[in-house]
Design a protein around this nucleic acid. Structure first.
Length: 469
RNA sequence: CGGGGAGUGGCGCAGUGGUAGCGCACCUGCUUUGGGGGCAGGCGGUCGGGGGUUCAAAUCCCCCCUCCCCGACCA
């Protein structure tokens, strides 16, 4: 039987997480506290995330652009709440070129200020609106307690910034991104169910009028904010003088949104689907969907394996051949398991003599089946769809099993030790500070039917309370 | 910033004044290959840094640095 390769999830969840990051070769810690080196396999996953998100972002009409890493410190100060929210975690460059700078420059913690300073130039007429811009970039927020992927001092993300002629248009766009880009990506690609709701005043983004969020439940019952979309109102438009002439000739301030998801999603992947054997990557996301594992190259097995790889590739499967015969079979099997590749196809002389291969699906540990080599491409393609659905179902079942309707504060505190506590917003509205004392936060507000409230003052709202990353 | 730990080979650790060790990893060879296989032989260390005590310091004393864990802010 296999030796334990990882710390068990139930023994020590944080240790398990670190083990998975190391053994699946996702990332290493960087030399500066809070920084990370994203290794090729981890980066391949991020590239897949980028590709799926980028397509959806463009489908929503936004275009990519790039703005500078360095921002004049004075820009940050222009929006009072914004600078207050970010100043504790800013990295500021005071010296460069061998001398002290006249004005310090900030390493961007987010790009609202610099992007909006250009929106101010670009927006003159209502015909310039809506202006829909996205940027893929790194940002820096000096973190006191970093954790790889989840909370790092430097991380990679996309940040969208838009300007609209009306509040309704801006609000509709913020929600469109939330549902059509982020929620769709989370469910369809990452196979993770998410609560989509509104942040409380306490939790919303510094400088926003409203923040919408996606909250996932991780394997230990804690919540992870997987993305946010903000209605910025006219706050930045006023601070940066983004005005336009309307069709009736009046001068108006633009209405804005911003929205982002980050490499934190890799952390969501690990903690949302991982098990005691390592990572489990949903097929729609996986850089490698299937691996053909050559057991021994006898009786033409090597050639047959290569042919299978070609057939699978032809069937649209992202497939890799593992013919490293100088490494033991068990070791290689464990490696692919750690990396969470959805399907493993084991090929050896024993199989080929019988005209079969051995299929192993990663979503159901130890589930090996023997199938005919005929029609392998179609079979595997179908299996990938099943695994995608199965991983979503497993994550949803876990969330439902760990979500409890709570009546009052005491029940909330109890339920939130294991998962999500759902409670009427009215009964905890005045208790957010008290809950914070127990490391609990209101993750989001939703209507009873799960839709998003237009204000936290709506009657009958449901608050989801949990511990969070 | 407050409280608690730890710095010894790539990783994880043992070593309480007397020749720096173990496991894993790595390299070589043989043997195995259907779940991290076996045997044999190897490479690799200014014991976080500086100062002090001593015939002798990884070990005792002083100073400094770094990292990790727990609390207040955050995608």
């Amino acid at each position: 039987m296999a030796k334990a390769v990882l710390t068990s999830k139930s023994d020590d969840f944080p240790k398990w997480y670190q083990d998975v990051v190391a053994k699946a070769e996702l990332a290493d810690n960087g030399p500066v506290r809070g920084t990370m080196v994203i290794r090729p396999y981890g980066y391949a996953i991020w590239e897949r995330m980028q590709a799926e998100l980028d397509r959806r972002i463009k489908d929503a009409g936004a275009q990519n652009a790039y703005f500078p890493l360095f921002i004049p410190e004075s820009y940050l100060r222009k929006e009072a709440e914004h600078v207050e929210g970010f100043s504790p975690e800013l990295a500021v460059v005071t010296h460069a070129g061998g001398k002290e700078l006249e004005e310090p420059v900030v390493v961007r913690p987010t790009s609202e200020t610099i992007i909006n300073s250009f929106f101010s130039k670009w927006v003159q007429s209502h015909r310039d609106l809506p202006l829909l811009i996205n940027q893929w970039a790194n940002v820096v927020r000096w973190e006191l307690r970093p954790r790889v992927f989840l909370r790092t001092t430097e991380f990679l993300w996309q940040e969208g910034h838009t300007a609209h002629a009306t509040q309704d248009d801006a609000r509709a766009y913020a929600l469109r991104i939330l549902h059509e880009v982020y929620e769709d990506f989370a469910r369809e690609v990452m196979a993770l169910p998410v609560l989509v709701g509104r942040k409380t005043e306490r939790e919303r983004f510094a400088g926003a009028d409203a923040t919408y969020t996606l909250e996932g439940m991780m394997g230990d019952g804690k919540a992870l904010q997987m993305g946010t979309s903000h209605e910025l109102g006219q706050n930045f438009a006023k601070a940066f003088d983004i005005t336009f002439q309307s069709s009736t000739g009046t001068t108006e301030h633009a209405w804005q949104t911003s929205w982002g998801v980050s490499t934190r999603l890799v952390g969501a992947l690990i903690m949302g689907h991982g098990d005691d054997a390592g990572l489990r990557v949903p097929p729609a996301l996986a850089p490698v969907q299937a691996v053909v594992l050559l057991v021994r190259d006898e009786d033409g097995a090597g050639e047959r394996a290569a042919a299978m790889v070609a057939e699978l590739r032809g069937a649209g499967v992202r497939v890799q051949l593992d013919d490293r015969l100088d490494t033991g079979f068990g070791r290689r099997a464990v490696e692919w398991e750690l990396k969470g590749v959805p399907v493993r196809i084991e090929v050896g002389p024993r199989d080929l003599a019988a005209g079969t291969v051995t299929l192993v699906r990663r979503d159901a540990a130890g589930d090996k089946t023997t199938v005919s080599v005929d029609g392998l491409g179609a079979r595997v393609a179908g299996l990938l769809g099943e695994i995608q659905a199965s991983l979503y179902r497993q994550a949803l079942n876990r969330r439902e099993a760990n979500t409890i309707d709570a009546g009052g504060l005491a029940e909330v505190r109890d339920a939130a030790q294991r998962g999500f506590a759902r409670v009427s917003w009215d009964s905890v509205r005045d208790s957010e500070v008290a809950l914070a004392g127990d490391a609990l936060t209101v993750r989001c507000l939703q209507r009873a039917d799960g839709t998003i409230p237009s204000s936290s003052a709506e009657p009958g709202l449901i608050a989801t309370v949990a511990k969070a990353y």
